[in-house]
């Protein structure tokens, strides 16, 4: 048996993805309707945001465009979790019905095999919307496009994505212990909306929770500080790439621990 490295997994993922897209395209109505749905969801989110700022010109010293920046940032950083890890939402069903056992018999990483099965194409609409918002606010704030700032941008976007993925993995994996993890996942999904706002507007208690327990402040706020407020960057911002990797690793271990404990239902 040859060693299975990153190249092996990327090749497999590429092939599954290609096949999956091919079969998705064959359901044209479903594809179009879900794309339209995604666009409207994004527009609705944006409109409520816009109404808020019609009434308050700034929140806690953050201007409209800066807030828009945070908003776009959170949308873009949510794309990977939406595209690549959407199968987490079905996990509780597979576990409950016992179908999860079918993933246990392949000679490849269980977590990879499970997540690779679904690629959610709707995430791409969100990505386009988020990028548009980000670039618009970027030019309005007048941040400029130097290679360094771009590099920072990419690194911190990846960080934010990792944290979002970690949150979802961990909340989905609770279904290995409790019957219905939907409520946990839904709770996390709702909290994630707070990621769009600067954490300083919350009370100290929530600031603590959003930083250390449910680290949604790392999805947009801490990473954005590096670009928006280069003079007042707290240490936590610089540490966030590391924290992102750490949280992802912990959530992966937690997920795998649950999966290894899984024993299926009778047949």
């Amino acid at each position: 048996m040859k060693r299975k490295g990153l190249g092996f997994y990327l090749r497999i993922y590429g092939k599954i993805l290609a096949q999956d897209l091919k079969s998705k395209m064959s359901y044209r109505a479903d594809f179009i309707i879900s794309t339209i749905g995604m666009i409207f969801t994004n527009i609705a989110g944006f409109v409520s945001f816009w109404i808020l700022f019609r009434n308050f010109p700034s929140i806690n010293g953050w201007s409209y465009h800066e807030m828009l920046f945070l908003y776009g940032f959170s949308l873009v950083s949510l794309t990977p979790v939406q595209c690549f890890f959407d199968n987490n939402w079905s996990l509780r069903m597979y576990v409950y019905s016992g179908d999860f056992i079918k993933y246990c018999f392949r000679p490849i990483n269980l977590f990879f095999y499970y997540q690779s099965e679904v690629f959610d194409i709707k995430g791409l609409g969100q990505l386009a919307f988020g990028l548009g918002t980000l670039i618009y606010s970027w030019t309005k704030i007048g941040l400029g496009f130097t290679p360094l700032i771009l590099l920072k941008r990419v690194v911190f976007l990846l960080t934010a994505s990792l944290i979002m993925i970690a949150l979802q993995n961990a909340s989905a994996a609770t279904c290995f212990w409790i019957q219905n993890s939907f409520y946990v996942m839904d709770l996390v999904l709702k909290f994630k909306d707070y990621a769009r706002y600067p954490i300083t507007i919350f009370s100290p208690v929530f600031r603590f929770i959003f930083t250390f327990i449910m680290p949604i402040a790392f999805i947009a706020y801490y990473p954005s500080l590096v670009i928006l407020r280069p003079n007042e960057v707290p240490l936590l911002s610089w540490l966030s790439p590391l924290i992102g990797c750490l949280f992802f690793w912990i959530s992966y271990k937690f997920w795998m621990f649950g999966a290894m404990k899984y024993s299926g239902t009778g047949s």
Binding site: Q19, G98, I101, K102, F105, P107, I108, S267
Partner: peptide, 20 residues
Amino acid sequence: AKNAQEIGVVFGQRSQLWWA
């Protein structure tokens, strides 16, 4: 994983193939 390489498993009611 090593064991999985050397065995094959079929559950009558549960297909392990990619559905789509």
